[in-house]
Write a protein that binds this DNA or RNA. Structure first.
Lengths: 121, 121, 121, 121
DNA sequence: GTGGTCTAGACCACA
DNA sequence: GTGGTCTAGACCACA
């Protein structure tokens, strides 16, 4: 379900966070579905349980999961997450477009690149 | 010319690097124009000279400036930099569009957002 | 494992970089094998940790090692490194041969020297 | 006669030294021919006279030129220089070959590369 | 324990 | 004056 790349420069906990975000956003983990327990996942990935703990805490802080003490961690409501996520993506998109404009690219160039540039692989 | 945000989580040297990249790409620092000396900038920003030194070394490694020992640091040729930079921007643009698609946004939505979204401020 | 020559005009961090490059290329440090920690090596060589840190950062930038935060530094894949390295060696070889030709040495002289000159110690 | 590349990372005096070495070795400056005066060359290259002075001192130290006080600097005997230079080149050649061998290249590979690899452009 | 960043301050090479 | 290297020592993030 999840693979960690030790050669990735990002810290391990961050990789775990991002993987779960994607799984939840894409619906691979359904709303209210239980995530693996901290201990089990730690064993599966050969990772320190503290690291998983930290990743789950971060996911909860960002609203992607909720914790029920004594029961485990569960995926949050996908629809609400996606709304927030779309906003985030659009913000980043606008920032990059501003950069593109500032080095002299035209609106047309940018849009053509989006359309033809393998953006839908 | 440059402002450092101590509350920013990114390291100081990285902020300095990014600020100068922008100034050079936008032409605010002309090709072959001298950058502030390591010591002067360190005083101006109330930052340790070592940190500025590191930022300048990184800028040189990435080709944004060149160093003449005993003389100072100078902005590289803008046109060459921009070519490489455009490629980088387009790559990031494609990545973000893939993300957008993966959460169910349509090509039309994305393009409309670029057009109307204040991308041309 | 590593010896630093303080009389060498090259900076210490560069000597450390070159030594580790050789150890990794020759297989003396196996792929994914852990390098000494920054602090341990600093103590062993009686060198400031910052200097080791810089050497390791450079090795990572050049692809010879990868860093896992909180765990340590590990040797990269030897085979991939050697491919790039061979190219580098051949380039240097050609440069030197050009020099040799330019002061009047013949192809035969050069090759004889390679063969007999202790190149295979 | 001589061009300085400010974007070259080597110090200016070293570039001057190398340029004159080549000119003398190739015979472009004949034995006992006078080199430009420190002041003239400094003006021609828009360089600090101290830097030229240092380059000439280094050339004298290495035996490429000799100084006659009140008269100027003159190229040394080419034949003697070339002998020493050949030795130097051969030494470097052997070192590189050892490197090549140590990463698994064969004698044949090396020689083929010298022959065919554009070494005589 | 391990690496990453930063300050303070020194000394050297180069122009 | 200018950049480059290094030491000493601190504090933080990560595992």
């Amino acid at each position: 379900m999840i693979l960690i790349d030790l050669k990735d420069s990002r810290p391990i906990y961050e990789q775990v966070v991002d993987k779960f975000k994607m799984l939840i956003l894409k619906g691979a983990i359904a709303p209210d579905e239980k995530l693996p327990s901290v201990r089990n996942l730690a064993v599966d990935l050969s990772i320190n349980p503290n690291t998983i703990q930290r990743a789950y805490a971060e996911l909860e802080r960002q609203g992607y999961i909720y914790t029920v003490k004594g029961k485990g961690n569960f995926a949050a409501d996908r629809d609400k997450l996606i709304d927030g996520y779309k906003e985030e993506i659009l913000k980043q998109l606008r920032e990059i477009c501003q950069l593109a404009i500032s080095v002299g690219m035209t609106e047309k160039e940018i849009i053509n690149n989006i359309k033809g540039g393998g953006a839908y692989d």
